[in-house]
Structures are given as structure tokens and as C-alpha cells.
Design a protein around this nucleic acid. Structure first.
Lengths: 179, 179
DNA sequence: TATTGATAGTCAAGAGTTTGATTATATTTG
DNA sequence: CAAATATAATCAAACTCTTGACTATCAATA
């Protein structure tokens, strides 16, 4: 056996957050340490979880994290225009456009022009696309559940609520969002 | 004025989390809704914050989020080899290698071969690199502080702690990490 | 000592993202 | 009604990231 290092890899990754705190404390006494710790943890937690989903589910199934997100938007909301998908997923319109080419090539979505406004098009799941998102969603949700099992149910609820509260504060100081 | 839409953009982005919950509830009654909500919120919060840092600080300063993270690792820990940087930042070794080319070209880091083990090289900040990371760190920390101001200090602490707890659970079920 | 295996860094190909420009179509307004 | 403005989607170029392969070097061992 030779691929058994995750147990040592993660601690070092997280220890770096503490090393950073120490360095900042020494170098910038006025810095907001609590905010820095929060943002580093937020980023690392998100990256770690996303990487796990992509590596354990989406790539082995021949798909990608980005593709999953776009298909999910169509599954949840029904046929949408690229602009609406961009809003729902947080991608840029250019990213949606590019990704749509890939998914259309794989036969998972279909583009149809609008007859009312010829600037518009609509994207919709094909049958294969619907089957793919149902399968991938269930696989990912199982994985999500395994991750969340590390916290008590009340903690899961608290964590989600605090994340949402943090985001709701954005507009009050002009945080930037995608166009 | 015409670029004043963030106030309507973000809500729709977050409403999608709830739409997803409803769809899942209807379609997969056995799904773990709480876990799904947590993971969607985690991802969205992280993406939103990171995008804001990149758009408001790093890109305007001619740098990038990825570059910032690498420079920060060197500033916190002193000269490191690519492998150590990969571990500390969570990037792959290939990503560190590629990004190092960019940063070296911009005069922010320096590569020096090791005399002991000729497979090793060491990356270190140049004077310009040190000045850049100090400037960018302070700018980003101010922004981090603005974000965190949306929560009470105790909530900031709780949020960071729960994120860390969530991650510590990873190894107990075999979550995947970068190599 | 010679081979075998592990480790460090890089390269190559492909996917996704960003910003800024471009094209086509609608809407507003002088 | 015509011209200016706005909107939708896409394109183009540059970056970052990932996986998998490759080269060089060191360590272990037969």
C-alpha cells in the first residue's frame, strides 16, 4: 500500500491557518485575526468538500463539478435562458455559454431559440441529461450526508444559517458580485 | 447610473438554494436535505467572498487570488519547496509549478536549487514579492473584516469553529484530498 | 554494486473561468 | 421614423487547475 497519506496531508493544510494567524499577529497587530481565520476556514472547507465531490463522483462518472451545477439548475427550475442560469448558479454568462457547448456536445442539454425575442435561447435537459442529473444528484447527496455526519444536526443547521447570514450582509457594504 | 443591480442579483442566487430544496423534497423524499443545504451554502458563501476579494483587490492590483495564496504561504513560512507549498495551500504540485513561472516572471519570487538534494528547489519572496504580499494582505484583511462585520463576534468564532470541525471529520469516512 | 522503487519537479492536454470585445436584436427617445 | 442606447449571447485571449506522463535524482535492497 502506498496511497495512504491523507491522514497526514490534511493536518498540515489546516495547521497553515494557525501559522498564518501567528505571523499576522506578530507583523500586523491591528489586523482582524478573527475575520482572517473565518475566511481561510471558509475557503478551505469549501475547496476540500468540492474537491471530494468532483474526485469521488463527478470525474469518475465522466462529468465535472461545473457541469453538475448547470444541469442541477435546469432540473430544479426547468428550461432557462443562459442569463437565468448564470444568475441561479453564480457563473458568468460567458462561462454558461462555454459550458453549454460541452454539455450539448455530450447530449445532456438542448438549445432552442425563442420565437418571441430572437436574442434569447432556452436551454433544457434532454432525457439523457435528466437521467444524469438524477443519478449524480443522489450520489452527491449521499456524500454530502457523510460529510455532514461529522456535526450534530443542530450544528449543521447553525452552520448553514450563519453562512447565509454572512452572505446577506454583502449588499450593506458593496461586496462585488458577478455580472 | 446603470450598474446598480447587485441588490437584485444576490437574492436570486440564494433563492435557488431554496428552490433546490423544494425540488429535492418532491423528487427524493429520502434525501438528506439539511446536508444539501449546508453544502450549497458553503459553496456559495465561499465563491461569493473569494470573487469579491479577487475583483476588488487582487485583479485591480494586477495580481490574482492564486498568486496571493502562494505568496502568503512564503510570507508565513519563509522559503519553501513546491511540494511544501502545495501541502500548505492545498494546490496540486503541478499548479504550484505553473503558478511559480508566472510569479517568477513578475519578479515576486525567486527559485534556487538545493545543493544537498538536486531534486529540490526552494522558492522565496523577492523584495518586491514581500512588499506585494504585505500590501495585498492588509487590503484583503480590511475586506475580510467588512464581511465579518455582518456577524456578531461570537458568531464569527462559532462559524469558524464549525467549519473546522466539519473538516476534521474528513478522514473518518475517507474523503478525498489532493495528492 | 546494480537494480528496483520512491520522490521532486515539470510538462502536456483538456476543462473551466475571467475580462473585454463583438454581433444581433429590441427598446427608447429626439 | 431614425438614431442612440440597452440587452442577450457568443467569441477571443489569458490564466488557473486537474490528471497523467515523464525526467532526474535519491534511497533501499538483493
Amino acid at each position: 500500500m502506498s496511497a495512504e497519506k491523507p491522514a497526514t496531508q490534511l493536518p498540515e493544510y489546516w495547521e497553515f491557518v494557525e501559522s498564518t494567524q501567528e505571523r499576522i499577529r506578530a507583523e500586523f497587530p491591528d489586523a482582524d485575526l478573527a475575520a482572517n481565520r473565518l475566511m481561510m476556514s471558509l475557503n478551505r472547507a469549501s475547496s476540500t468538500v468540492t474537491y471530494d465531490f468532483e474526485a469521488s463522483i463527478h470525474r469518475p462518472g465522466g462529468s465535472t463539478w461545473a457541469g453538475f451545477r448547470l444541469l442541477l439548475a435546469l432540473w430544479v427550475s426547468g428550461p432557462l435562458g443562459p442569463h437565468q442560469i448564470a444568475t441561479a448558479t453564480g457563473m458568468s454568462r460567458a462561462a454558461v455559454s462555454s459550458l453549454s457547448n460541452t454539455l450539448e456536445g455530450r447530449g445532456l442539454i438542448r438549445r432552442t431559440p425563442s420565437s418571441e425575442d430572437r436574442r434569447h435561447i432556452t436551454l433544457a435537459l434532454t432525457e439523457d441529461g435528466e437521467a444524469a442529473i438524477r443519478r449524480d444528484f443522489q450520489a452527491q447527496n449521499s456524500r454530502e450526508s457523510e460529510w455532514a455526519a461529522g456535526l450534530a444536526p443542530a450544528e449543521v443547521e447553525t452552520l448553514a444559517r450563519l453562512l447565509e447570514k454572512l452572505m446577506q450582509h454583502r449588499s450593506s457594504f458593496g461586496g462585488l458580485a458577478r455580472r
